[in-house]
Design a protein around this nucleic acid. Sequence first.
DNA 1: TGTACATCAGTGAACGCGCGTTCACTGATGTAC
DNA 2: TGTACATCAGTGAACGCGCGTTCACTGATGTAC
Lengths: 217, 217
Amino acid sequence: VVTRRKKKDSWHHGDLRRVLLDTGLRVVEKDGVSALNLRELAQKAGVSSGAPYHHFTNRQALLVALAEEGFARLRDAMASAQAAAAPAPVARLEALGRAYVEFALSQSGYFRLMFRADLDKTRHAGVNAESDKAFRLLEEAIAECQRAGLAPGVQPEALALTLWSAVHGAACLWVDGPLRYEFRGFARDSLPTVVPRTLTTAFSPDEPVAMPKRRRR
Amino acid sequence: VVTRRKKKDSWHHGDLRRVLLDTGLRVVEKDGVSALNLRELAQKAGVSSGAPYHHFTNRQALLVALAEEGFARLRDAMASAQAAAAPAPVARLEALGRAYVEFALSQSGYFRLMFRADLDKTRHAGVNAESDKAFRLLEEAIAECQRAGLAPGVQPEALALTLWSAVHGAACLWVDGPLRYEFRGFARDSLPTVVPRTLTTAFSPDEPVAMPKRRRR
DNA sequence: TGTACATCAGTGAACGCGCGTTCACTGATGTAC
DNA sequence: TGTACATCAGTGAACGCGCGTTCACTGATGTAC
């Protein structure tokens, strides 16, 4: 409804592309991906219904652009959380997991766009590259823990997958699933910590332990 | 396209309600929830476009009915997997987790319907009751392990949430997510085992261990 | 066993709207000389 | 610095389709007596 003006009022609208992305993100955050339509976006940006097509070839392209952006931001969030964490390998790993869940909860628009079912059909180079980078952070942190003897000596791939699954699952259950930001009295703020902390605690309950030597095969 | 006839050709169509549910499920399994539309369902059942409304008040109601059914089937699958498992608490817990993921992969139609975002808005008593029952199986199996000293001594709620998150996340990543039934050379058949097994192995790596006593708070 | 009546599961045509997308256009912006 | 021209981001009206939903109807099914 309100016409947005960015710094430079040049080029007619300022930065329509950015405005479309931003308002689109807000719509998805509030009502889900299926609620996003270009006409409404155009209207909210104070622009005619055809205008968005000068910036995105179609609706799908806008969704993909947002998904790419989301993966990049997730990676940034994870990287800086890790950098800010205590130097111990377990603390660093836990910080990554927490950042993942925190991102999903606070940026649920991006999260939905990044993992929506239809994305794969059009899975674009940019999306794949970004998501790979995010996942690689997790893998490296796990390898680091294993080298230090701070994680169970199972296949690293299995451990990486399990950790990713756990934080991803928590995010799904909270963002769109039956939990909706609530689970048995855990405070909203502590939610992102619960799952990663439980895992790292389970992996090395007391303190650094040697890699367990499996006795039977 | 093909007109279905059930045993009794009575009542015009036989059992249109059931046929609509079944073909709807197949559509969702193949192309996702958004691909399901009542006109196509009616056509596939060889019936006019208005016919479904004698069995479901609207599209939403059909989706909810399928979701309820899905939760009931998930619970059955989990219960019988647990019953068929070895008597050891850890084996029983692992069987539950495996059943959850197996269900998601083999019945991805139900899985999508059960956890789709829009379900919550209309979250019905039937759905809630069924999903609670399924989750309670998991909780009890965890409590059993903890009593036997076979799981870390963290809060049971945190452990339950983490396990649920892990199997749910694996399911999401495989069914609609970036993994799509593939992860680093794990065979498709072994996928449902990877995450639950990794967790139970991590929880009690060698054999039954006493509940760890946390030294620092 | 037959008849009358209520009920119920279908038909098929139509309504109507949301929304992606197109298109001929206009006026603003940048650039070459 | 001014002018001519290409380009580009908008307008706004319209197309068109998919699809949920409705409605007056018809014929089949079950039930009461």
